[in-house]
Write a protein that binds this DNA or RNA. Structure first.
Lengths: 161, 161
DNA sequence: CGGTATCCCATTTGATACTG
DNA sequence: CAGTATCAAATGGGATACCG
């Protein structure tokens, strides 16, 4: 059966979970963040069934995370590229890589090094920070309901985060 | 059919995707980050089938993201709490909330306000930053294969991120 | 309360083949 | 190349019942 829709939760995280709570979606996005743009390129690299890939790409386009552009030269080809909304997922993607590397690392050492072009130094872990850049723990963050909150969220965020 | 395993990719993001690429998992983790600890509490709030919840909790415990502690007073009860590995997901959770709020916001205004106890100010968006705190775009980040890299990853990260 | 155990069935996966 | 079409298998979702 299809999973219950999270629409009625009307919660920011539920929305994101609805979009990104799928392993293929995350891997496809990883490949696109890495510069892959064509169907077959992604297909051969991920060994994903073509109909599954087709389905996920359609959904991602439909949700405004990717845009599909026919190649002006060869009309048969299409390119999939990130929209600004899709680019907004960048901190999430990096945080996922860092978490995977930190907690599910290989005994043989790092699988990947991420560094910055600005100074050549390794990327520090993505963190939750306050306005002045201080890292925050969950207990230092307060959540309050906004005008568009729902009963569902109120029950959740009634306590502090 | 069961989804192909991502084990052989041996990639940090694939690992994370394998663990977190599930909508129920993300919502359960959200509730636990918000202080919920008991089975029924989560069950009633999410309206998730009990066997699905049971399955996800077992998997999360098995993967070291949650730990299960029998209540010392009432042995029938159990509490599910985040391990350090689970707490490491905090930046990802916040980034998901912020992305959902930013791009899938309600027309009625914000659903939630996140602020810091340190200064009372709103939380800035979680961002990828360099060692000195400067925000980075994808093009400013370089990925290089480490000693434990795989052919799969090499093909992906051959280009720059 | 805090789950586990069954059950059914629709969806989804993944293989294969095919088309423009 | 870029998908669409078809199909069998089986997983996973959800309902219900049950147990300590």
């Amino acid at each position: 059966m299809r999973r219950k829709s999270f629409e009625d939760f009307d919660c920011s995280l539920a929305q994101a979970a609805d979009y990104l709570g799928d392993a293929w979606v995350l891997l496809i996005l990883r490949n696109i963040f890495n510069g892959m743009r064509r169907f077959d390129e992604i297909n051969s690299h991920l060994e994903i069934p073509t109909n599954t890939l087709s389905d996920r790409l359609k959904t991602l386009v439909g949700r405004g995370i990717l845009r599909r552009e026919p190649d002006p030269v060869d009309g048969r080809r299409a390119e999939y590229r990130l929209t600004p909304k899709g680019e907004g997922l960048y901190p999430i993607m990096i945080a996922l890589v860092q978490w995977g590397e930190c907690w599910e690392g290989s005994p043989a050492g790092p699988r990947i090094y991420l560094s910055s072009r600005t100074d050549g130094k390794p990327l520090p872990p993505v963190q939750v920070r306050d306005a002045s850049g201080l890292p925050l723990t969950p207990r230092q963050v307060v959540a309050k309901p906004g005008p568009a909150t729902t009963e569902h969220m109120r029950k959740l965020y009634g306590g502090n985060w």
